[in-house]
Amino acid sequence: MTRKTLLPLILLIAVPLLAALPVIGSRALVQDLFMVLCLLVLALNWNLLAGFAGLVSVGQQAFVGIGAYALYACVILWGMDPLAGLLIAGLVAMALSAPVAFFAFRLHGAYFAIGTWVVAEIARLCLGQWKALGGGTGTSLPKGAAQEMWGAETVRALIGGSKAAAVDALTYWLALALVVVMLVASWAFLRSRMGLGLQAVRDNPVAARAVGVDPTRLKALVFLLTAFGTGICGGLLFIQIGRISPDAAFSLLDWTAFVIFIVVIGGIGTLPGPVIGVLVFYGLERLLADFGTVYLIVLGLIGIAIMLFARRGLWGSFLLHTGIDPLPLSHAAPRAGSANRSF
């Protein structure tokens, strides 16, 4: 029974605590944690891709940027509400991920990594040509747009403070909601028939095909779904940031390199890995924030060390040494006799 109650229990304790933050915490902390939550969303998505589907993409910033640009187009050019724009951002990213998959899936392994990176560069260069959204230098979200979005007034009535603080709180809650949805959805997906197929392909492609799993279909599905999640996250990030440019929206460092380090440090191919990783990442950032480049060097060295000495990251090592898996993705063995009934 504990296996089934643990995840809800953790969420039940952690989520209300985090949700109360805009009421009790400072605005700076809310903004910090907004960024942490968004990185966690990106990390959960990348972990699904690389850790479970075996698709090591170095180009997920493509979908962050596409989502962000879709949102800005919705708000600035067509006068839509940013919240509706978020949904469009996810849908546009998912729609564009289909032709990307058509191209990138011709490449395997390391070729795939480079192929996705090239796609992200193409998207960055193309959107830099979009003069209505500021071309290469970018543009800002109109000041009122975020402050008048659906729910902002209600939030302000709830927690008081300035209009800008209400936007911060609202985007923070949206990010938190996105994290919860991503966590629950990944857990459900990985324990579903399709998720099991995916892990079977990862562990032994030949055996998986032999029992009827179609790897390409499953991988394409994961690619499309993670593009949707990444696109929404990109839109949300740039509502809060308030200004967009091709270089910021398609930043390899911010939206892919950090995310890769988070997943690798926490434990690639494990569900709690990204959560652990983002905590370590945030701790390191606070500790080394004043040193700038040293921080990145340390991050790179930790990533290398993890790959050399503990490939499954912190969470994987914990599982290995203790043998305790509080959040198993596997199913319990069927009870005696149940096998007969299922046929």
Partner: peptide, 12 residues
């Protein structure tokens, strides 16, 4: 991932 980490280390 190791060469990716190396790239970040060398750049910085």
């Amino acid at each position: 991932l190791v060469t990716f980490g190396l790239s970040v280390v060398i750049q910085n």
